[in-house]
Design a protein around this nucleic acid. Sequence first.
RNA 1: GUGGAUGUAGCUCAGUGGUUAGAGCACUGGAUUGUGGUUCCAGGGGUCGUCGGUUCAAUCCCGAUCUUCCACCCCA
Length: 456
Amino acid sequence: MQTSIPKGTRDFGPAEMSRRNYIFETIKSVFRLYGFQPIETPAMENLSTLLGKYGEEGDKLLFRILNSGDFLTNVPDDKFQERASGSFAPFISEKGLRYDLTVPFARFVVQHRNELVFPFRRFQVQTVWRADRPQKGRYREFYQCDADVIGSDSLLNEAELVQIIDQVFRRLNVRTVVKINNRKVLAGIAEILGQADRITDITVAIDKMDKIGLEKVKEELLQKGVSAAAIDKLQPILLLEGDTTQKLASLRSILAASEVGQKGIDELQTLFDYVATFDLNTEVELDLTLARGLNYYTGAIFEVKAKDMAIGSICGGGRYDDLTGIFGLPGVSGVGISFGAERIYDVLLHLDGFPKESLESTRALFVNFGKAEEAYILPVLYRLRNHGINAEIYPEADKMKKQMNYANRKEIPFVVLAGANEMQENKFTLKNMSSGEQQLVSSEELIKILSRHEVI
RNA sequence: GUGGAUGUAGCUCAGUGGUUAGAGCACUGGAUUGUGGUUCCAGGGGUCGUCGGUUCAAUCCCGAUCUUCCACCCCA
């Protein structure tokens, strides 16, 4: 029988799981350090919650769940005849798999607003699904690791998110650069250009600056119907030189006529002032070409890139002023970030950055020689486990070669042998599998040696 | 969603319009009845992605479909 799994999904074996858990645990522990609390939401949401929140593209990428039971009976005859999936679909599907963690979170906040303590700091590490066409580093099922603060306008939140990013990548030993921009500044730019209604086209185009270059961006803008005069005015903004302070200063004069632009610059200034007082490993820079696709961002936007590997962003986020408004709770501002665990995995693999001990599962294997030996071993095994030592006994009295081979394959560092000789002396032979050395020890010594956590 | 490539043993890959399709690694057994990683010997395992067409004959040629990969769109 041929087995397979759906397109764009993956299995994870034990070795991959321990590496992935290392990443998840690192991220979660930093989230906890900053006072964030975990929540989980269901894999599926009502389509009414999901639809229309990610733009037209996003709606197409939603996985929809077929209604259970005899789902065709609810379809009116005329819809059935039309064969148009657009009008047909609502009758046969009312649930979908979540597309990200932010929208379900917004729904969660609205639904539980009376139980929550605001400002609410939550983190969430769960799978999301997108019916995208898979390629390298892009899957139809993947994890997101989100932290958001909701119910606070303070820019201190943005500043602390930068600290969190720094702390996570410091612990993972990945050199990064954090790029920051502000959606209000982008709106200001569109306003100055006299193209306030084209803000989406403009931001999408200038987001491609580092990828396709200035000339292509200008071409794309022309094609989208932005006037040549406006593009000429845009050019000096994209080519701003100098450090952050200088960039902000020149931007302030360029955007003098835009109120929203000035507001954005103020916010950026405050954020960078905070960040300047932190002792960070990561570089933090102002990048006016950073746009981020998601259209619910309204203030700061972040993106993190690895310095030692070209793989796109490994973390991103921003402020959204009214995400809960669509669920009937207006005026609640939030800001959050999302770590891309799958890409961080690829970066660590590339840098050989996974710690050796994260792979070890069993510390000691007891060789099985037979029933009498089993009875001798089991109480000691129980004691080892009570001391927090991962240990196992081979379940059958198979050939030594096979049992030793099992230890090799599982990369178990110690093997314990206890047969007639050892039983007579009430001792155990402890073998170090990497050096091949072995010693005769008591059960007390066994526990003592195996409790040491050094890597061998 | 658009364009291009790909699919042969568990894995990495050879190969041919014509008898029983191969290698390395892995697996199982033996050399070796309390000592693994090395070596040697033997063995099991494939409707050559799936369906259809051309042909006396297809794993090979053609078409469709699915998978994986690459670029675009978009994104983590």
